[in-house]
Design a protein around this nucleic acid. Structure first.
Lengths: 199, 199
DNA sequence: ACCTGAACACCGTTCAAGT
DNA sequence: ACCTGAACACCGTTCAAGT
């Protein structure tokens, strides 16, 4: 009659799944592996998540929210100019992506059984970028600028983690070059907009 | 005594796998599904590929070689200046990525059972970019510039295909903005290098 | 030389039964 | 309310046997 005490929680399951993901990739995130890690049997997982795809989606959402917190902190703790904030954001993102490469690679992808993070969590992760972009180029071009910056940082770190940069050379320098070029060009695009507005 | 006639080929198997990949994602590329599509039984696939991971790697290599041919054609058929060639390359890459989004998303990723395209095929796909980058910024910065350009185009199209750009706005415009900004900034970086060299 | 059916271990998922 | 063992369909893979 007395209900079985919960031996785990949704949060603990997501944490276990994230650990398995980083250790062994997507295929290592099996219902059996996750269940074992949290100390229950596979069927019990279905009391917490509808199916494996739901669990993977929760992993991605959790990752996106973590990233959002990190990037928000970077922006809020800084009183520098937008360009400096952009460099700080990019550095923080790269650290995050290199610390948890498999989760980061899934953030804006669609390769895991159709699982995707919630739109809100994705928006949360990108919000600080959007904010800095708006400070740099104004509200009209902010969304496009944020997309450009996110695409570069996400693409670069995904490739880096996947080992796609194997021709030698300094990978750090390439990331910095990209950032500098984007920051400079976006400032110039903003100036162009101001000139147009001044006419 | 007479050996069984081959009813399929490695190339036909790879083609079938690519079709299944685009139609239903990675999970749709099952040995059973691929075998059925080429008209043999699953065990026979192991006469052509060591295991599923090998087959996926062949799919990625095939994709990379296709892309390499497309991009090489773009550069070779053009007598424009490097910046115009860069825009042509980027447009061709985006068309490719939107035509076969799942394969394109895997090109520089590491999410499919540890399968990756051969290094040569990856190099083949990127070679035209490296060539145009060198024409723009010179040999010293060519590798870094090519990485920046590839990261942007790959990241952008991966995000676009995954549905990560869901806040409205013109996605085309954002891609063009990124390209213009990168092209302008890289030209400027090249000028900087020339000035240094002139000192 | 390639193809096949049978078999095995494994995985995601369901469900009736337990507390 | 959550957990469990048993069961099912499915998947990747192996292998001896066929031609």
């Amino acid at each position: 009659m007395s209900p079985a005490r919960a031996r785990t929680s949704g949060a603990a399951i997501v944490t276990a799944a994230r650990e398995l993901l980083e250790d062994g990739g997507l295929e290592a995130v099996s219902m059996a592996g996750v269940a074992q890690r949290v100390g229950i049997r596979p069927p019990s997982l279905y009391k917490h998540f509808g199916d494996r795809s739901d669990l993977l989606a929760a992993v991605m959402t959790d990752t996106a929210l973590d990233l959002g917190r990190i990037l928000t902190d970077v922006v809020e703790r800084s009183d520098e100019d937008p360009t400096a904030q952009l460099h700080a954001l990019a550095a923080a993102y790269r650290s995050f992506a290199l610390a948890t490469p498999r989760a980061a690679a899934l953030l804006f992808a669609d390769v895991a059984a159709g699982a995707t993070p919630t739109l809100e969590s994705q928006a949360e992760a990108v919000r600080p970028v959007l904010r800095v972009a708006e400070a740099m180029v104004g509200p009209t071009k902010a969304l496009a600028a944020a997309r450009v910056l996110t695409a570069f940082a996400y693409g670069f770190t995904s490739m880096e983690s996947a080992g796609a940069f194997h021709l030698g050379g300094e990978v750090d320098d390439a990331y910095q070059l990209g950032l500098s070029v984007l920051a400079f060009g976006l400032e110039r695009a903003a100036a162009g907009t101001s000139q147009e507005a001044a006419r």
